[in-house]
Amino acid sequence: MKQIKSLLIAGLVLMGINLSAQNQSDMRLNEYLVYNTDDFQDDFGQQNAWFELFNVSYGTVNIGGCYLSNDINNLQKYIIPKGDVLTSIKPRQHVLFWADNQPYRGTFHTNFTLAESDTIYFVSSDGRTIIDRIAIQKDIEPNLSYGRTQDGIGSVDGNGEGWQFMSRTSPSTNNAVLEAKSKSAVMAELDPNGGLMALTAMSVVFLALIILFFVFKTIGKLATRNQQHKSDVATEGKITTVKAEENTGEAIAAISTALYLYAVDNEAHDEESFQITMKHTDRSYSPWSSKIYTLRQNPQVKKN
């Protein structure tokens, strides 16, 4: 028993570690710019190479403790500092790193620069697992960035599938222009009267409940057959099983209430069998049928 408990606890701990890794695995390298002569400036007014990470998930991801590198032989080249609130990346948000080899300037300045032969690596906090990588394009023009066509979508093995040269650089923002209209606005154009929505939605509601209907009709049939089988077995003995259909609803209600009250008062069973067994008794007298208890007393005439 102790061993099972230990195994369970160990399993849970491993799951926890794995979950954390899974969380970090939601980050993607999203865009980079190598030759920055006339593009985005950092907080110090300098133009350097930069690259962007994107959180593809709908949960916050803390990248503190993860690594960035441009060297396959040294994946732990730059550790993203832990304890900086800015390393908690909100759902579907970007974070920009400056590859300027000036890490003393803050969390988001790495200790390496980018060159054409490099590959950028984003490495898990275990220091070994490469979560994403991208090989830098050759003959890249100044101030031209290379990024994913759609944020976070495409390969993670560095072959550049889903990547392209960007028509405009977009550090810390979406690579593609998002749909400006809300779903509600789109629906207003598509279905101004609501007829289409009513038809679609009612079809789905009916579909869901029709499927439930068929499933429980089948389950009901199986249950009835099972009950019938048990009932047949019981009739083989001396005890007679009375089918519920032969009684009126009122009788069933009265018997059920009596049984329920009996069970509750006596705390007889945790779970009832839902079968009522009635035995014929040879005793002719019972208080249930006694006239003494059912007749009103005769009025007494006082004689003075």
Partner: peptide, 26 residues
């Protein structure tokens, strides 16, 4: 179950009338 589905027409009937009265789809 199907009766429970049919009564949901009230939701989408009101949805259509609300659109006619100038409310946005949301």
């Amino acid at each position: 179950l199907l009766i429970g589905a049919a009564a949901q027409f009230g939701i989408f009937g009101a949805y259509a009338i609300s659109l006619a009265l100038g409310f946005t789809p949301a």
